[in-house]
Design a protein around this nucleic acid. Structure first.
Length: 954
RNA sequence: GCAGGGGUGGCAGAGCUUGGUCAAAUGCGACGGGUUCAGGGCCCGCUUCCUUUAGUGGAUUCGUGGGUUCAAAUCCCUCCCCCUGCACCA
């Protein structure tokens, strides 16, 4: 008998089969007559070894590669490493500075100290981690053709990227312009999130600075605001007091700003500080609203910040709780305010998004001063704490911009966003205002300790993804692409529409020099949009001097321009090599599938589509794209700082490569995050080991004539093949693995419980399961395949074919009948037990007569009870008409539930009869089956087709 | 704010494209029982409420509030809430 479970030494079978694969070179893909299928995954950035989360993308890609191989494709799965950009440089610098935090992080991965010491050299970092990552991938059993390995900082790669940028430039897609960036004035460098403390991304927001002419002076106060449309409601201006302000020249005009603000804005515009002036002087001025012509006073505002915007704000008490509160507080303190009265400029139903307001429980007592009304419905007032005012501000802002209508002449009824746009344009065109940028999530602090500001970079190089021709080409590529999951289509369409200018040149970083200005480097996402094409032939040009890789070479290989002989002459590269490169590219690039994690949708993947659309011919456009979710550990994303990382190699050693593969790749739907847990891995191992146990003991089963259970198992097997294949085709990997691993084990157990024991049937079943398991668990599959007596490699076998003939719906229904009968018996028993009945002595099942089936079938067709009664009684001499009428009347009550039944009494009977022992065991009493018409049971009449009557004796 | 995704039973998570067979798959957890020492494992049952002296019948459920329909978790509209991205960062 089978043992059910046996222990597998995963690490040793992993090693063994990896060696076998290497020896047989089965993943080295060469041109052939078979249809090509090329799978690429976003190459990893090599600044650390991988953890099990990285396996999600690479494992999913590998799974597809392995599956497609089994489906008869010639599959190429290459891999490379990304080292471009600044992080690795920054890394080397931190190592040089002996950064304790960083060195601590490395301890998670057990990196030897002497290696860390060598990492002051950025190129060594790339070399070291590329090796580490490759090693991890090999140990995971990824079916990669390692001959094609490349690194993004090697000369061949750079030559290729230079060619790419030449093509982009020829298409007019490289443009220059000004661009705001987060900036550190101390290091004189742009700051991204990895340059800041707590990895904060500087969020750059646009504000409008509106000029209020000072009465009696040739100068203005510049107020910064997000809401120029509220200009109609300005009652005064606010400045910080005490504070230092400054008279500046901005583009030749005199403008007052807070001194701190002026220092920051210097990096955005032509601005000079002329003289300093205390806030007390500013407070004496009166200024003119450029839109209404009204003169308003300047007041001290408790909430004004000198470094935010211009350090001066306009006061709109009707629409800004802070402004209203500030004025109230000034009045309370006896300050001579003299501001204009609050003026409502936007109408909205106050508090409509709050439930207690919309239900009428809290209504403001007035609506003429909306900001006060907002404070009121929040049960507070002008003296509220700042957090409360902040909350009221957000609520009011949201409701007004969402539903508000302008209540000002010329703009009546207009929505706020539209009014804002128009008024802003009006002001800027009339030189009454100018744009400024601020850090929205300030303070963002650079690692050096300086607070970041916004700087406008002049003459920056951009890749113009906003170009309409380019966009429509990208849309065309995308329209023809197959995307998984399909629900991402809209997201991609949005991303294609949204992508605009992208700065491509950087002052520093590893990688390729920017061809149009060699003082700059190509930015690191822009150099990895079409590199997959390089995999198709890079192993053919490995020995070639990179300097020979002039544009003519790539023009020919990738675009088919010119001919091999001429190119060979022009480049000095051997004719054979040129030729082979072109052949390889044009073979492999016909059918490609691109894989990455969900985080790359809005940048890499979309740029990938764009770049392919403009550079390659239609036949080489990408065909498939697959986006996967990530892996969570204890509900959290894995991160070094959280310390919840499981390094890949450590995980493999602990759990074995295959259980981890299944847990990570098939633990959730393709696009959902999967939760990694030891419990899940154990569940997987249990099933694997159950299958292993069956195979170990398979010789104990004799081969004999097929019984009902056997037909049933064949039927179920083919159903599994069918649905597993469907799931694999649409990469519903969780469903596929459930079907293959979990459900097959359930079916096997059920088979044995029913008394199934036919050796050949079991073997057929298990063989198919093992093959379908191969893409998920290749090492285990090889081992089990081998243990089943096969001399071939499972990795090279064909995916099990569906044999539709063996799907026997009737067999399955008859089998289910047994389970349903048991369920009914048990339900009755438990109900009886509640009433105090003892254990049952005997269970009798009575199978309904054929005339009942006849009646049901007729009723299903004609739907007329009286006709059915006549027809059935005339054809069934032995049964009384009254009995028939009773039965028909009963089922006719639920006419629309009546279905055709094509299973006879005899079939139903023999199926149950064969399962008598099983039923007895399940229900805990002797069980017998008899036929209605031959039974003397009182309850025989109650039997219905597929629902035998049950009589229980106690 | 803009864009995309999402809100389902104790939790996780299907189903919603093609309305009914959905009180809602599956897994986990909890509870009860068995497996005749405990624990684990395994097996069985149960896990909205009521009802049923035998396998039953009914009510109320799928973020909120409306609507369409003989019929809605599933279609339409509204609002609320959550997640992700928003660019020079790989």
């Amino acid at each position: 008998m089978h043992t059910g479970v046996s222990i597998i030494d995963y690490n040793s079978i992993d090693r063994h089969w990896q060696e076998e694969w290497d020896r047989a070179k089965i993943f080295e893909a060469n041109l052939s007559d078979k249809p090509p299928f090329m799978v690429t995954a976003a190459f990893p950035y090599v600044n650390a070894p991988h953890h099990i989360g990285h396996l999600r993308t690479y494992g999913t890609a590998d799974l597809l590669a392995r599956y497609k191989r089994m489906r008869g494709f010639n599959v190429l799965f290459p891999m490379g490493f990304h080292g471009t950009g600044t992080p690795i440089l920054a890394f080397a610098k931190r190592i040089r500075e002996n950064d304790a935090e960083l060195i601590n992080e490395f301890k998670i991965f057990h990196i030897p100290e002497e290696e860390i010491r060598k990492m002051t050299d950025p190129e060594y970092i790339v070399e070291y981690f590329a090796k580490e990552v490759e090693n991890g991938m090999r140990r995971t059993g990824l079916s990669i053709d390692w001959r094609r390995k490349l690194v993004s900082i090697e000369p061949i790669f750079s030559k290729f990227i230079e060619w790419q940028f030449k093509v982009l430039d020829e298409n007019g897609l490289l443009v220059r312009g000004d661009h705001p960036v987060g900036w550190c004035t101390n290091e004189n460098n742009a700051v991204g999130s990895h340059d800041t403390r707590h990895d904060m991304e500087p969020e750059i927001e646009e504000q409008t600075a509106i000029k209020f002419k000072v009465e009696g002076e040739d100068a203005s106060l510049a107020c910064s605001t997000y809401r120029p449309e509220t200009l109609f409601g300005v009652t005064n201006l606010f400045v910080k007091d005490p504070a230092i302000y400054a008279l500046c020249t901005v583009n030749g005009e005199k403008v007052y700003l807070a001194k701190e603000a002026a220092k920051i804005l210097k990096s955005q515009m032509d601005l000079e500080i002329q003289s300093e002036i205390p806030s007390s002087e500013i407070l004496k001025k009166r200024c003119v609203n450029p839109l209404t012509g009204e003169a308003v006073p300047v007041l001290p505002g408790f909430f004004v910040r000198e470094s935010m915007g211009t350090g001066i704000v306009m006061s709109v008490p009707a629409h800004a709780p802070f402004d209203y509160a500030a004025i109230q507080r000034l009045e309370q303190s006896g300050y001579p305010v003299h501001a204009l009265p609050p003026k409502k400029v936007i109408d909205v139903q106050i508090g409509r998004s709050l439930s207690d307001v919309s239900e009428g429980e809290a209504k403001p007592s007035q609506t003429e001063v909306p900001s006060l009304a907002y404070l009121e419905i929040l049960h507070t007032g002008p003296n509220a704490i700042n957090d409360m005012l902040e909350f009221a501000t957000k609520l009011q802002y949201r409701e007004e911009s969402h539903w508000g209508k302008m209540a000002v002449k010329g703009y009546e009824g207009m929505g706020e966003p539209e009014a804002r746009e128009r008024i802003t344009k009006l002001l800027i065109d009339g030189n009454e205002a100018f744009k400024i940028y601020i850090i929205g999530n300030a303070p963002v602090v650079c690692r050096c300790g300086t607070e970041a500001i916004v700087k406008i970079i002049k003459g920056q190089w951009f890749l113009n993804y906003g170009d309409e021709k380019w966009k429509s080409a990208a849309r065309e590529v995308f329209a023809k692409m197959d995307v998984k999951p399909d629900k991402l289509r809209k997201t991609f369409e949005a991303a294609i529409g949204w992508l605009n200018l992208r700065a491509v040149a950087r002052a520093q970083g590893l990688g390729t020099k920017f061809p149009l200005d060699r003082n700059f480097m190509i930015e690191s996402l822009s150099d990895s949009t079409i590199y997959m094409a390089l995999y198709t032939f890079i192993h053919h040009i490995r020995g070639v001097d990179a300097n020979k890789l002039i544009p003519e070479f790539f023009d020919y290989v990738l675009l088919g321009k010119g001919d091999a002989e001429a190119v060979s002459k022009a480049t000095g590269i051997e004719y054979e090599t040129v030729n082979r490169a072109r052949e390889s590219f044009s073979y492999w690039y016909r059918e490609t599938s691109r894989h990455s994690g969900a985080d790359l949708v809005f940048n890499h993947l979309t740029m990938y589509i764009f770049n392919h659309s403009i550079i390659f011919g239609k036949e080489y456009w990408p065909k498939h794209m697959v986006v996967n979710g990530s892996v969570l550990s204890e509900g959290e994303k894995m991160s070094k700082s959280l310390g919840n990382i499981i390094p890949l190699e450590e995980g493999i050693e602990r759990y074995g490569a295959d259980p981890i593969r299944i847990a990570v790749i098939a633990g959730a739907d393709l696009y959902s995050d999967s939760e990694f847990s030891a419990a899940a891995v154990n569940g997987i191992k249990e099933r694997i080991e159950y299958l292993n146990g069956i195979i170990d003991g398979i010789d104990n089963y004799q081969t004999s004539e097929l019984k009902k259970v056997d037909y049933y198992l064949y039927s179920v097997l083919n159903r599994k093949v069918d649905s597993a294949t469907r799931h694999m085709e649409s990469l519903e990997l969780r469903d596929a693995s459930t079907e293959i691993l979990y459900n097959s084990v359930i079916e096997l157990k059920r088979y044995f419980k029913r008394g199934g024991a036919n050796g050949i049937v079991i073997k057929d079943f298990v063989q198919s399961v093992v093959l379908m398991l191969q893409p998920f668990a290749p090492h285990v599959a090889e081992e089990l395949w081998h243990n089943l007596g096969n001399g071939t490699l499972a990795s090279l076998e064909r995916w099990p074919a569906l044999n539709k003939e063996l799907i026997d719906e009737k067999a399955e229904r008859l089998d289910n009948l047994v389970d349903e009968a048991c369920e009914d018996i048990k339900r009755s028993l438990s109900l009886m037990a509640k009433k105090g009945n003892r254990a049952p002595k005997e269970i009798r099942l009575i199978v309904a007569s054929d005339w009942k089936r006849d009646a049901a079938n007729r009723l299903a067709e004609t739907r007329k009870a009286s006709d059915v009664i006549d027809a059935v009684s005339s054809g069934n001499g032995g049964v009384g008409k009254e009995k028939i009428a009773d039965y028909v009347a009963k089922i006719a009550k639920r006419l629309n539930e009546v279905r055709r039944i094509d299973i006879s009494q005899e079939e139903e009977f023999s199926s149950l009869k064969e399962a008598e022992d099983y039923i007895a065991k399940e229900c805990g009493a002797k069980a017998s089956v008899e036929k209605e018409g031959e039974s003397d049971s009182q309850r025989a009449d109650r039997s219905a087709p597929m629902k035998p009557s049950i009589e229980i004796r106690f």
